[in-house]
Amino acid sequence: MIILLVLGYVVVGAFELYMWSDRPWKKVLAYLCTLALAVTLTVIVVSSWQIPVPQPLRLLENWVKELWAGGGQ
């Protein structure tokens, strides 16, 4: 399943790049990096790895909760 999905992304990426009239390397690099992120997310979800969602602002949330009990529920 994972291989099939990755292959799907590769086909979509290749087709889009083929359709572009010009291919400056910066644009191609940005496109491929963003597509790689999409593939990584798909693999995480399909493979059922329990990777927690990063929450960098959790500290602030905890502080608000402490200030106002139940406020962040």
Partner: peptide, 24 residues
Amino acid sequence: LGFTDYRFLVTPVALSMIPAAQWL
């Protein structure tokens, strides 16, 4: 990222939203 055109990024961003909706 310093580009004036955004359309070339729409497809990968859209494709990343589908798994993100299941992950988040």
